[in-house]
Amino acid sequence: MSAAIPEYRPPLFSAQRVWTLATSTFTQLVRMKTFYFLAVFAVLVIAASNLNLLYTPVQQLKVIRETSLGAMSIFSWLFAISATAVLIPRDLEDRTLYTILSKPVPRLEYLVGKLLGVLLVIGVALALMYAFFSLILFFQEYSIISSEMSRMSQNPRYSLEDRATEAALISAYGPDLNLLYGVLAVFLKSAVLATVAMLISTFASSSLFTIIITTVIFLIGHFHKMAADFWVAEQQGALITRILGKVLVLVIPDFQIFNISDSISGGQSVAFLVIAQMSALALMYVIIFTIASWFLFSDKEF
């Protein structure tokens, strides 16, 4: 019985274990009543669709798109930072980490599993929000077009062509694939943000520290282009600030790049290639920061 076992060579990286950790994290976050936010979101979207500030038909749809994507962004940033910052320290404090790492779980798997769990919650929440607001948008589009058409048809000035053009203009702001891309961009940005939070939490002394530092990095990441233009291109300022600026630009991700949902809610369309490239960029960030986290976490003692 005992002779057979030493020959057993279990896999060094197991997707099944990662998935177990991810789903457990998912359950944990869901049972922490995270999804109550969805109710707030629903109220917001409905409020936005009833907001009438002398809006044109197109603006009425736009304000729903803008409010929804904006609320989705805020939710996913807050969630990415706070959930990631809290989860690992909490496992450590509760000593749950001892029981997990004393199973045959490599530390990389633990990190990836936790991160995946957080991303799973963000992903599912975004998908639900997207479904809800697309539905609202669909009904609004329908009712706005029909009321607009009936009004225009009573006015002989408008030709059939005018009406068709107006209908097409309005429906350009209905639910469409571009919005899905916008939501995906929101997700990608939070994924990078969560990975940064994970890296910080592998050496931070408290969750609060992680939250503050990650937020600061997040803000600096938005000044990236400005900082790059100012510090890297220009040869002015003290040597130390120039060096510091260069280091920051190289180390901190450019979060501004993911901000396309603003333009999308305003009606810009996105090519698939752009989204594919953005996903590749986000994936690259996630991999780099996960490797860095693993570096620090693998040496940690509990």
Partner: peptide
């Protein structure tokens, strides 16, 4: 070696597990 943990079980001092499970 992480594989050494296949054949061991551990109950830590004052253990806490995931309360939500």
């Amino acid at each position: 070696d992480v594989r050494s943990r296949h054949r061991v079980g551990f109950l830590p001092e004052n253990p806490y597990f995931y309360k939500h499970l």
